[in-house]
Design a protein around this nucleic acid. Structure first.
Lengths: 226, 226
DNA sequence: CAGTTCCGGAACTGTGCGGTAACGTAGGAG
DNA sequence: CTCCTACGTTACCGCACAGTTCCGGAACTG
């Protein structure tokens, strides 16, 4: 079902500290008998986790759901992750979207650049991420580290683009030099997540345009933009 | 512990429709024998609900916690509300803060008015509300009506004030006449809830000032404010 | 071949919690 | 006084779910 293309690092599966007895057998020989673990199952399980997370949230998600969606047994899941929380944390961490920094739009105006950012496929991808964020809220205040992970994986990429566009607009002389780039760059994410979490309204193109034309551009550019 | 000063309407306790058999005893006589229900328990239970909600969220909250905090028995709670969800919905609905619209600050400038809104006690009260909102997120997408209730009780009062201040600034000629008041009025709430839910950072005076000076004022007023 | 580890599936255990029922007591109506 | 209801406490039921274990089978090592 889902895409899931990356995941290079093994998810740190079960590092139960051996608590060395007296001078134990140094390093366990890397070669072990038996059937090899199938790495493709990791990605399937993580993708299934994100799907279920986006649909029912962390508290509504059960390990049976994840296993069923991944067509895996629960034992296969627990062989790789110690707990439900561990699984979700890893799934979010492996969600780094491909950095869209390479092809920054350059339309010549700040508004044009910002509008170019919200092409339709990009918006749909962002909606999925917002659903995932919604489901993570309840876990975030039990696992503080997850807040930072989530921010980096889900929010920061887009904020970084906005930041770069604003910086360029300042250098170009279009935006006023004293504008608060850091705060302005987080406005989009804040407005979008607020609309999704509390208002339960869709974050569509029209809404994003009103944020660009009603907030970001007028705040960055002195004169009425348009 | 908590304040809890309002609550005039009885919380609709258990209106099990009688499904009239043939010509039953018309209206049940309003006077009933036995001990009267103590109305002060309602407020205590609702206040306890909001306290627990702010501390552990909806999914972490148990009915035993609420009953213990209110020094009540679970039966006393269930005599008034049919379910956990009902209790929480009523608790949020009874949280209408006193409308601060009567004494709108009038400092002569938009920035001065907005800064006057964020006096220290007001900020602390808002933080409690943000904690409650955080705990409600997981329930909101199971009970769509709750989204509207939450918005009206927790968000709308402050947004309405901001809206009024912006409108006045436009009439005064300070803010540009074409500014998007509706979108700008929701920026504060969005930034604050985003910071609380996702970033887990405190919504303090410094942060709110950066929203005012970095976003709202420059977006509403054409020229660099200050 | 035997021995070991993985796989999906299913049965199982333990626990925490929503909701109910049964106490014994307090207090208002007749 | 006698009913009847509300109150707080405690025990209890049922269920859902995290996590474990076992099964039959597949894959890999020696």
């Amino acid at each position: 079902m889902a895409a899931m293309t990356q995941l290079e690092s093994p998810p740190a599966g079960a590092a139960a500290l051996p608590e060395g007895a007296e001078g134990a057998a140094a390093a366990p020989p890397a070669v072990r008998p038996g059937r090899r673990r199938d790495p493709s199952r990791d990605a399937d399980i993580l993708a299934a986790t994100l799907d279920v997370l986006a649909e029912v949230g962390y508290d509504g998600m059960t390990m049976d759901m994840v296993a069923a969606r991944a067509q895996a047994g629960k034992a296969t899941v627990y062989r790789r992750w110690e707990s439900k929380a561990d699984l979700v944390i890893d799934a979010v961490a492996c969600l780094k979207s491909p950095p869209p920094l390479d092809d920054l739009p350059d339309t010549g105006s700040l508004r044009g650049d910002l509008v170019a950012m919200i092409r339709t496929p990009s918006v749909k991808d962002a909606q999925r991420k917002l659903r995932i964020m919604t489901g993570l809220v309840s876990l975030i205040d039990r696992e503080p580290e997850l807040a930072e992970t989530t921010r980096r994986a889900l929010v920061e990429p887009r904020a970084a683009v906005t930041r770069a566009l604003l910086r360029r607009a300042v250098e170009r002389g279009e935006a006023r030099p004293d504008c608060d780039i850091e705060t302005l760059a987080s406005v989009s994410a804040a407005m979008a997540s607020y609309r999704t979490l509390m208002l339960r309204k869709p974050v569509d193109r029209e809404f994003l345009l009103s944020v660009i034309d009603g907030v970001i551009v007028p705040a960055a550019v002195g004169a009425p933009g348009h």
